[in-house]
Design a protein around this nucleic acid. Sequence first.
DNA 1: TATTGTTATACTCTATAACTATA
DNA 2: TATAGTTATAGAGTATAACAATA
Lengths: 173, 173
Amino acid sequence: MNRSATHSPAPDAPDAPLLPVAGLAYGVLDDLLGYALRRAQNALYLDFFRATEAFDVSPQRFAALVLVAENPGLRQGLLAQAMGLHRSGALRLTNWLAQRGWVERRDDPVDARSWGLHLTASGLAQVKALTAVVRAHDAALSQALGKQATGLKQTLEHLALLANASAVITRPA
Amino acid sequence: MNRSATHSPAPDAPDAPLLPVAGLAYGVLDDLLGYALRRAQNALYLDFFRATEAFDVSPQRFAALVLVAENPGLRQGLLAQAMGLHRSGALRLTNWLAQRGWVERRDDPVDARSWGLHLTASGLAQVKALTAVVRAHDAALSQALGKQATGLKQTLEHLALLANASAVITRPA
DNA sequence: TATTGTTATACTCTATAACTATA
DNA sequence: TATAGTTATAGAGTATAACAATA
């Protein structure tokens, strides 16, 4: 799925949705919260690309842009931590955003080993436009969900905390 | 994160969780259903590996095993469709399961071009053991969630349908 | 002519390890 | 000695394209 054959490598979304196939038995999968979550996430992931087709950005890159926008001078290492990435991953991500001219590395005034990440003017424009689109899209989905949407986000956050907690307990250090 | 250095390439889970970092501003991300969904999915994904540590299986491979178990004679192409994969992806997935001796390809009685996928005896044992663990784990999470868990799965399924529908509408053919 | 599975290839993402420079 | 970032490399995952066999 090449959203822009013109300019850059561009992130790829999975081609096919994870829809239930008629006539197929799913057994346990139909009972699992985790599988329902995966299906929903897959659907929203694909939908994100649809909504932001004009921008050629992945959800991850959008998140990185927002984090830099909200935290001027953000270090790469912190970006990695916030996004669950290895340092080398944050490097690539930053490189991509820098090549686009949306983010620039400046010397960190406190620690000479670090960069401070900052949005450029064009990066700021991107974030603003993207944010508007993403917000509208998210709102539309919530509205379509109706009263079910109420509390869904909170429940998901609760669920994430619970799952993370059990993971931390079982995998010390 | 090599769960088994002994036998196979084994799938890698992301190393770090997607936890909110203290002192960081997340801006829009905190308001988005999609981001909450991503965080929850990431947490459950990591948690799956924790719960099934002894088995060396990814959620995807578990799903494939279940689908073959529930639909004996399943063709590779259908497996691909059910899992949102390209045919070549289903091939690799099947190869991995076959190498493990959990799945075998038999001639399809109706269509000589196709394989029918079947579980081996050891594959069946794997699925049974895995299913028990995964079920227990899922139940524990649901219980910890409390009354919030009620309806969450249905809401997620509803959300997936909505997002898929809008994607289909906007991306014809 | 279309479809199933395969082979070969390429690209993205992420991780590891070794390196530099700063702390 | 530890940390921030970089470089180089390797692995898994998925996509494309061309091919054989069959429908």
